[in-house]
Design a protein around this nucleic acid. Sequence first.
RNA 1: GGCCCCUUCGUCUAGCGGUCCAGGACUCCGGGUUCUCAGUCCGGCAAUCGCGGGUUCGAAUCCCGCAGGGGUCACCA
Length: 476
Amino acid sequence: MQPIRTRFAPSPTGQLHIGGVRAALFPWLLARRYGGSFILRIEDTDQSREVSGAIDTIKDSLKWLGLDWDEGPDIGGPYAPYIQSQRRTSYLDWANRLVHAGRAYADDRSTSELDQLRLDANNRHRPFLARDYRPTTKNQWQPGTVPLRFLSEPKAYTWHDEIMGELSAGADAVDDFILIKSDGLPTYNFAYIIDDFEMKISHVIRGLEYIASMPKYLNLYEALELSKPKFAHMPHILGPEGNKKLSKRDNAMSVLEYKEQGYLPEAMINFLALLGWNPGIEQEIFTLNELIEKFSLERVGRSGARFDERRLLWMDGNYIRNLPLDELYIRSEHYWPPEAESYPPQYKKNILNLVQERLKFLGELPQLTRFFFVDLPIDTALIKDNKKLAALSSGQLSALLNETLTEFNSSDFTAADLNLHLNQLLTRLHESPAVLFGLIRIATTQAPASPPLAEYLALIGKEKTIARIKTQLEHL
RNA sequence: GGCCCCUUCGUCUAGCGGUCCAGGACUCCGGGUUCUCAGUCCGGCAAUCGCGGGUUCGAAUCCCGCAGGGGUCACCA
């Protein structure tokens, strides 16, 4: 069996978004599954669409996700270069073979001329086929002047797709198309075929938008007399509401934005792998190795899958909860609120220990932990919006807090001892936890949510706790 | 419009002729967890398998039509 060689071949036209990641993930998984190679190739033959810095962005995205490549523009490889604009002599070489074989011709018609033909065909409700309008005069082709067009030999095709199964199309799907543009660079339709052949790619895995062009490609392969790789066309990832293909317009879809929000790459990979693929068992959480071990193109679904961010959120929280504390601490480094800067690592680890199970993504850290580092301003709405506390007079509330102050005075402020005192208070005052604990929580955090009372008070310490309760007392 | 593909709970999906009056997960709802939020545990709602015909003793599963959705018809990828 031929070695498995797959590739991800993006155009450097901007951010790598969710759909793009999956276009990299599946070929990567396949290559890793069979001990093959994963190649990164940059398809930059349309210079007008190129965005500077896009190549780095794409590489950063892949690196963050852990999708490493064995050959590519930065690290080279046996079939370098891996940037299409640097491979033009190769394309020209193959193009000339086609010219000599009589399977390609110079097309010196203007775009407006072609547009007119298209329009005419359209008006007659007939599909426009370039091969029905071949120019009558044969011109010598000079690269870099006019485009070179493939001369097709139309016929029906049936072929196998590793994901979609048996596919077929009639001869009408085969047409003459541009191989080399007037600027001397190849179109995607020509370049990928040459590159994949020269780079010995075994599986072409890409989006289903290319299915419609397959008959043309098959015809070209024959004209070129090249062996074909296996093809696998993936269904699209659809946007959150419509059935439309997920696009950059569905905001926050750039992978790097998820990184900034503090999503874990392993959660992202797990989530994306299960979007459109599943191993047929009821397991939902997979390590990267399990994914590699189980992945197969046959089990990729044929219909589009909607991107559901809530599921991603759940999965990310799941991964965060299962991280060892020290690991979580390292991952959290850039997500603390600014006030945390001066605090020692151990204090932050203790805090993480308390908030870990309520974190869904690291970006939530500031809102969950600010009160550990700074005295938040008194928020009177907290008491006002609490049904049970709002029913009490400020005198009653003050009495409760003063009793708390006395009780805490004799505590050593370990969580266990704090709990002891808290329970004594409860029985002594004949008060319910909902009222007493709720009040103390508000007084000591000024935040809408927090970890269990005794535990975070132990961390904040006696001094701050007392001070905050006193401040609250002044505002009742 | 032509050609091609797709169609199971709101969402991701399992299912490849009988074990499915359809299973899991997310979401949502109810309850437990001394207070909040989250988590967790328990329980619940939710698909007559797009529709209509066949084939078969028997169909979500096979066949044919239809409908809906998507893709594609560039010197973009």
